[in-house]
Nucleic acid binder design. Structure first.
Length: 254
DNA sequence: ATGGCGCGCGCAGCGCGA
């Protein structure tokens, strides 16, 4: 089974890239973040014409998540139960017996901001809910834009980013807390190239210079993280005209 | 070098992303 995550930074703008990518890679499930559209405007017909079902939870301008899948998702859940949040950042569904959870973790802006506090509170709520989800669904994959670079090797300039948002110790601890629930960072299951990132700033020719961060992740429960599992970053869409600033991350699970 | 790029909103220029 092939599962993937991609922050598209507006599904309106990126729909052609998404349709091309689905046609080329044919994942069983693709989690999308930053659709930036209300549900009434979701391009369901185009997605279905590509052979995919679509689940979505969106809002105008900001956030918005979707799960595209070849077979129909069951037990759909939008948002974190018990955590009141106007922002559409979570969507879960069971696809082919695997609990697929799509997340768009808050950015946090800067470590001294209210948005950073919200990010840490949000991550704590996610952690609490995931513990229950894992008990219900041993085969679970958590995919999305985590807005956390887990380790210095996930950062092009660790000294410059030290203590900054996306790299701060509390954020990295929150990421490790998720792993401690019984999840594995799929990208680190096997040897990987140096300087592998998933996001590059639009400015400063950052992609061409590979000034990036690895902040988009696929976490797999132990039941899915067996010997056959693998994970790659697909940088090809970042090279297109008008790209998303994020690249898709793909995992093959057994 | 605190900008820079791209997006949505909405029609100018700002908030936001990471």
């Amino acid at each position: 089974m092939k599962i993937a995550t991609w922050n598209v930074n507006s599904l309106n703008v990126r729909l052609p890239h998404v349709l091309d990518w689905l046609a080329e890679h044919r994942p069983d499930a693709l989690c999308i973040q930053e659709t930036k559209m209300e549900d009434a405007k979701f391009p369901r017909a185009e997605i279905e014409a590509a052979g995919y079902r679509a689940l979505f939870s969106g809002q105008k301008t900001y956030n918005g998540v979707a799960i595209l899948s070849r077979s129909e998702g069951a037990d759909v859940q939008a948002g974190i139960p018990g955590f009141a949040d106007e922002q559409k950042r979570v969507l879960a569904a069971t696809v082919d017996g695997v609990r697929v959870i799509c997340v768009y973790v808050p950015n946090g802006q800067s470590v001294d901001s209210d948005k950073y506090r919200y990010k840490l509170d949000w991550l704590a709520a996610l952690d609490k809910w995931l513990k229950e989800e894992l008990a219900r669904h041993p085969k679970l994959a958590l995919l999305g834009d985590f807005n956390i670079a887990p380790d210095d090797r996930d950062v092009y300039d660790p000294a410059a980013w030290e203590g900054q948002v996306l790299c701060s110790a509390p954020e990295r601890q929150a990421f490790r807390d998720l792993l401690a629930l019984g999840l594995k960072d799929a990208f680190r299951l096997a040897e990987q190239p140096e300087k592998a990132y998933t996001w590059w700033d639009y400015r400063m020719n950052a992609f061409r210079r590979n000034l990036g961060l690895r902040i988009d992740h696929i976490l797999l429960s132990d039941a899915l993280a067996g010997a056959g599992a693998s994970c790659t970053v697909d940088t090809a869409p970042r090279k297109l005209e008008r790209p998303s600033d994020h690249a898709p991350v793909v995992a093959e699970i057994t």
